[in-house]
Amino acid sequence: MATGGRRGAAAAPLLVAVAALLLGAAGHLYPGEVCPGMDIRNNLTRLHELENCSVIEGHLQILLMFKTRPEDFRDLSFPKLIMITDYLLLFRVYGLESLKDLFPNLTVIRGSRLFFNYALVIFEMVHLKELGLYNLMNITRGSVRIEKNNELCYLATIDWSRILDSVEDNYIVLNKDDNEECGDICPGTAKGKTNCPATVINGQFVERCWTHSHCQKVCPTICKSHGCTAEGLCCHSECLGNCSQPDDPTKCVACRNFYLDGRCVETCPPPYYHFQDWRCVNFSFCQDLHHKCKNSRRQGCHQYVIHNNKCIPECPSGYTMNSSNLLCTPCLGPCPKVCHLLEGEKTIDSVTSAQELRGCTVINGSLIINIRGGNNLAAELEANLGLIEEISGYLKIRRSYALVSLSFFRKLRLIRGETLEIGNYSFYALDNQNLRQLWDWSKHNLTITQGKLFFHYNPKLCLSEIHKMEEVSGTKGRQERNDIALKTNGDQASCENELLKFSYIRTSFDKI
């Protein structure tokens, strides 16, 4: 039985969820670079991206490699990797027998973001014989899940209580170790020597080791999670996991709180800001991140802002960003909400898709409305799209047979046209069989910064309504002859009103 693990408890099935942008060198404390989270699957090609990484700022997932063999891993080693800020997950990587050479110096898994409450997941690794993470000293947050690894031993010899604050939620089941077939031998045991430290858990006094050649490092209890030197002297209180010299914040392997210019500090002093819960960055760093993602459509890219001495992905609820200094300031009234469309555009074809934009005031991208039916549609669209004030790209209304009016965009005031449909149009209306009105132009103002209007096959939309939009939106004169079809717009509506004058002759039985 794995020490510190839980057996036999019912657990939810383990679901495996399925960018080499360097964020800056980590400095003297770390020998390499800070790398983003990685999802490495199918083959070993991307694994080489770990070569210079000291910190993975995010998670590391290595999974679904069915053609790899043990010899493929023999020359692979990433000794610079010290810390993973989120979680480490391995799933069905064939041929991998140990992690001792792959990650010989991995010391800390912070667990800032977890995989279903777990910071370390080893699942269905069919050839893994031992973990071998002999320098792993601290899992700051989260638990361990090690399950269905039929060859995995050296679990009962690990004292997880020396690595985690609590072992109650560890789930370590259905491994070879369960069948008591392992016969784990710690260093020196074969020669009758006791080389590794022994600890007591559940009444068992057991030597602690990761492999037959690597003991588990056990520091004096007084050192807590700070770690200790090879001689057993406690590291500085700002260290986490390990250090090369005692009581020196510049000799830590990793930091308990924050890293700044080669030393570990309790908090980031001005003019620095907390970033990702582990390091200090200056304003320029946060500003660069903001600008890199301002026009990016890459998933996970955030326009970072500053709030409460932190550089964070977005302002919290009730705050909006001051564009001059990136500071989050309290909103006066309802907060603006910028919604970034991942692929640059979004099609609204149902109430469900409209709900995804609920509360958005600025759309960074283009909207395509293609709704053919739905219950209580006008009210639903207004509830979900009615706060949109600005669209950076274009607005396209296409084959939306259920629409009679666009009044559900009740606050839309600006279409920038930074991206144009077919390279020309910022407003595009095609084949809307029941569209009769755009907006009530006596109450609604709309500016279209650039781009043209396109109207074709809107049989109940009168040309007068379209011409009014040209005047109000500032697009009059931009359109070419064929942009607004004269014969297919309003051709099934009563669009022309003329005053009919009647004269009559009164007659009676005795007068003409």
Rank of each mutant, 00 (worst) to 15 (best):
S237G: 07
G132P: 01
K217Y: 05
Y30R: 02
R69W: 05
G192L: 14
N170K: 12
K193G: 14
P70D: 14
F205S: 14
R74P: 01
E266K: 15
N195G: 11
T68Q: 14
W210R: 06
G262V: 02
D165V: 11
C280A: 00
L29E: 14
E151Y: 15
L50A: 07
L332A: 07
M38W: 03
N179R: 13
P70M: 11
L289M: 15
N42E: 14
L155E: 09
T221E: 15
C239V: 01
T229K: 05
N202M: 12
C280G: 00
G37R: 04
C268L: 01
I122A: 08
N149E: 00
F66V: 12
K100L: 10
L90P: 00
F115A: 12
P336I: 12
T229V: 06
T320F: 14
R46Y: 05
G300E: 06
Q245L: 09
K294V: 03
G95W: 05
S284G: 13
Q303L: 08
G333A: 03
V167D: 03
G241A: 09
I222V: 07
A190N: 10
S213K: 15
G333Y: 08
S161Q: 07
Y154N: 06
T45S: 08
L106Q: 00
S225P: 12
C264E: 00
T189N: 10
M65P: 01
L63F: 04
F66R: 02
S323E: 14
A198L: 09
N170D: 09
E238A: 13
N105R: 08
L155R: 05
V218M: 06
L90A: 03
T107K: 12
N149Q: 03
G188E: 04
T199W: 11
D178H: 14
I163F: 12
S237D: 14
D178Y: 13
C239R: 00
L289V: 10
Y171P: 05
V144R: 01
P316M: 03
P197G: 08
A156H: 05
F283Q: 03
L260C: 01
G232Q: 05
N135D: 07
S237L: 06
G203H: 11
D277Q: 09
D178I: 12
N170S: 09
Q299W: 03
P187H: 04
T85V: 05
S324E: 04
R110E: 03
H307D: 15
S98P: 00
V93I: 03
M321Y: 13
L60F: 02
Y171T: 06
G95F: 05
C228Q: 03
P104C: 01
D39A: 12
C311S: 00
C301I: 00
L152W: 00
N52G: 15
V173L: 15
Y134K: 00
R145P: 02
H236K: 01
N175K: 14
D261T: 13
E180T: 07
I222L: 05
E49D: 07
D75S: 10
P270R: 03
L327V: 03
L60P: 00
N135W: 02
L128V: 03
M137R: 09
E97F: 15
D75N: 14
L332T: 06
Y94N: 08
C331N: 06
G241M: 02
G95N: 05
A230Q: 15
I139G: 00
R141V: 07
H214E: 06
V121H: 11
D184F: 06
T199V: 09
P336Q: 05
A119T: 04
L106V: 02
S112M: 15
L327G: 02
G32R: 13
H302I: 07
T229Q: 07
P249T: 06
N43V: 09
A198Q: 02
L60W: 00
S161M: 04
E207Q: 08
G95H: 14
C255S: 00
Y134N: 06
P79S: 06
I222M: 04
C223Y: 02
I56H: 00
C235Y: 00
F275V: 03
R74Q: 04
L88H: 00
P271Q: 03
T320G: 05
S77G: 07
H274N: 15
P36T: 08
C328N: 00
V206H: 10
L90H: 00
R145D: 03
T140M: 08
I306E: 02
K67Y: 04
T85Y: 02
S98K: 03
H302S: 11
R110N: 03
H274G: 12
L164E: 15
N257L: 03
W278K: 01
V173T: 11
Q61L: 07
V218P: 11
F285M: 07
C280L: 01
P313A: 06
C53V: 02
N242C: 08
K100M: 10
D288R: 14
V93K: 00
P313Q: 09
V144P: 02
M137E: 06
K217V: 10
V206A: 05
D288I: 08
S323R: 05
E130G: 05
D277E: 11
E168Y: 06
D165T: 08
W160P: 01
N105F: 03
R256V: 10
L327D: 14
Q287H: 06
V93F: 10
H48R: 06
L128W: 01
P271D: 01
T199C: 12
K193R: 15
R162T: 07
D72C: 13
L99H: 00
C255A: 01
P270N: 03
D184H: 07
N150T: 07
M38D: 04
N295F: 10
S244R: 11
C293F: 06
S213T: 08
E130H: 10
R298N: 05
S143A: 12
L260F: 07
S161R: 10
I62Q: 00
T199K: 07
E124P: 00
T189F: 12
Q276F: 12
I139Q: 01
G262H: 04
P31F: 12
Y259C: 14
G333S: 05
T194S: 10
H214R: 05
I82M: 14
L96R: 01
C182S: 14
N149Y: 00
L327M: 08
L99A: 03
N150Q: 12
D169L: 08
E151I: 06
G37V: 13
W160E: 01
E57L: 04
H59C: 13
C268W: 00
G300D: 12
R256S: 08
H59V: 09
P316N: 03
